[in-house]
Design a protein around this nucleic acid. Sequence first.
DNA 1: CTGAAAGCGCTTACAG
DNA 2: CTGAAAGCGCTTACAG
Lengths: 335, 335
Amino acid sequence: MSQARTLNDVAKHANVSPSTVSRILNGTASVSPDKRKSVEEAISLLGYRPNLMAQALAKGRSMTIGVVTQAISSPFYGETFVGIEQGLASSGYHPMFISGHWRAEEEREAVDILTSRRADALIILGGNLEDDYLLKMAESLPIVTVGRTVQGLEHQSINISQEDGAMLGMRHLLDLGHRRIAHISGPPSHRDAIERFTGYKNALAEYGIAYDPELVLEGNYQERAGLLATEQLLSRRTDVTAIFAANDQTAMGARLAMFRRGIRVPDDMSLIGFDDLFASGYTTPPLTTVRQPGEDMGLAAANMVFALLEGHRPKPPRLSASLIVRESTSRLRFA
Amino acid sequence: MSQARTLNDVAKHANVSPSTVSRILNGTASVSPDKRKSVEEAISLLGYRPNLMAQALAKGRSMTIGVVTQAISSPFYGETFVGIEQGLASSGYHPMFISGHWRAEEEREAVDILTSRRADALIILGGNLEDDYLLKMAESLPIVTVGRTVQGLEHQSINISQEDGAMLGMRHLLDLGHRRIAHISGPPSHRDAIERFTGYKNALAEYGIAYDPELVLEGNYQERAGLLATEQLLSRRTDVTAIFAANDQTAMGARLAMFRRGIRVPDDMSLIGFDDLFASGYTTPPLTTVRQPGEDMGLAAANMVFALLEGHRPKPPRLSASLIVRESTSRLRFA
DNA sequence: CTGAAAGCGCTTACAG
DNA sequence: CTGAAAGCGCTTACAG
C-alpha cells in the first residue's frame, strides 16, 4: 500500500505553506503565479488527491447527497437515479443510494446512515416514512421528496398527480368503448397505489359506470402478482374487456396470464399499464401506458437540492403524467 | 438547523472524558457499568450520532466500498447491486455507486472520486478500464472485479465463462435441430460480447456447421439495436430458423421485430437470450436464456472485499452460466 | 478502568 | 499575497 500523499507533502515539496496549497486547490484567494506553478507541479508529481473526509470535517460539508430509495434494482426508480446522477453531475456532489425496501424502519435506518455520513441533503424516493418524521428532518437538513408530496413541504416535493394519470389511462380505455374494465392495484399501503385506484374509480363515475368491486384485484406492483390476479379474474369473470394495471410490471404479469389462456392483446382484451418503463416499448405487443417522467423527476430533485443548499426556496417544475398509446389497447369490437 | 451533537457534548453531559465515550461507542475497552450507563443515557438524550467523516479521518477507514458501475439503471447490473448491498449489509460498510458508462475515461473519474473519498475498497463491474491500470490500483487498494477477470488478479475477480454460457445456449438450439442460427452481438469492444460471440462460433464448429458471416449482426446490448439488426437480417435472409441474441435486451428487440413481421416465436423462429433478467420470465413467450447469476456475483464480490480487508486471500466461488429453458425455443419443425 | 494529549488531513479567520 | 495557529470531531497510544 503506497501511502496517500497529503496537503502537507505537497506544501513541503513546493516550499510553501499548507494554507497556500489549500487556497490554490480551492481557488479561494489569489496566489502569485510562480507559487501556483510550483504547487501544481508538486501536485501532479506526487499524484496528490485531496482527502474528501478531511475536507468534509473541516468544511462541514460532505459533498454527498443521500438518496433513500426503496430498491436499487427497481426499473422505475432506476430512471430517477439517472436523473439524479445527471442533475448532480460535475457539481462536486455525489449521490449515495441506500435502500429502504418500503419498510419505514429500514428507511429510517437509511436516513441514519446518511446523516451519520453527514450528507448535505437528502432525497427521499417514495417510501413509507411518516410525514411528521420528514417534517422534523426538514428542520435541520435540506430534504426533497420525490413521488410523494408532504403537507407543509410542498415546495420541496416533486410529484405528479397519480390520480390524473390514472384517469388519463382510464379515459383512453373508456373512449375506446370499454365498459367492463378491471383494475389490478398496487400495494394498498402505498399512497400512489391508492391514488391510482381513486383515479380508476373517478373515471368510471365520470362515464356513469357503476363501480364493481369484483373487478378490482389486489396486486403489489410486481409481475407475479399481476399474473396471479389476472388468472383469478379470468377464472371468475368472462365479461371483462380491458385491464388497467397499477403499473407496467403488473401489466407484464397480466399479459402473461392472458397469453397462457390464449387471449390475444389487444384483439380479445385491452391492457394498459402505468410508469412507461423503458422495457414497455419492447413488449409484444408494445404496451400502452401512462408515462411517469422518472428521469425528469430525478433531475428536478437534484435542482431543488441545489436551491435548498444555496438557501433559496426551490420551485418544483410542474410535471405530469401523459398517455403513451402503443399497441396493447384497441377499440372494443363487439359490445 | 439544529446543531449536531458531538462526542464532547456527550462526554460533558455524562461527566466523563471523550476517550471514555469513544471507547464505549467502539466497544474497544471495558468500562465501568455506571459510566457506561450514564453515557448511554446522554447519547439517547442528546440524540447523538457519531460523525462518520471524523471517524473516517481518525481511523483511516471510511467504511465505504466504492463500486464503479456502468449504468445505475442497468437491469443486469441492478441484480449485482442487490447482491453487493446484501453482502455488505450490517457490516457497517456501505456501497457508493458511481457510473462510468463504459467509457474508460469516465470510469477513471469514478475511481478518482471514490479514492478521494477514501473508499476502503473498490468493486469494478465490467467496463473498459485497462488491465494495467487495475493492476496498479490493486497495489494500493483492495479491489475486486466483477464480470471480467484481470490477468494477475484472478483471485480478486469474480466471473463466469461467457464463452461456456454461449455454448450452452447454442447447443440447446443445435440440439433442437436448428442449423441456420443468427447471432446479434454485443458491442464489439466489450470483452464479454466477444466471448459470447466466440462461444457462438465454437458451438457451430462443434456441430460441424460452417460459419456464415452474413448471419452475425452487430448490436450493442440494447433493445433498439436488436430490433434493427433483426429487421435487417429478416429482409435479407429467409432461411434463418433461430437467433442467439447476445443478451436479453437484444432478444427483446429481436422479438419485437419478429412480431412486426408476424413471425411467431417459437413456432416460426426460436429465440434465445443471455443474462436471464428478471423481466425475461414475463415476456411473451417467456424467454429461453442463459442465466448469469448477477446477484450471486455481487454477493461474492462483497465477501471477497471482506477477505481482502482482513488481509486474507479471497477465494472466488466457482460460478457459472446455466441454461434456462422457457418458451421461446422449440424443435425445428421442417428442415 | 480512565483521562490528557497528540494526531488524522484539511480549512480559515487572524495577522502581517 | 502568505504563513502560523486553531479547529473540525473523532481515535488511540501513553500514563497512571
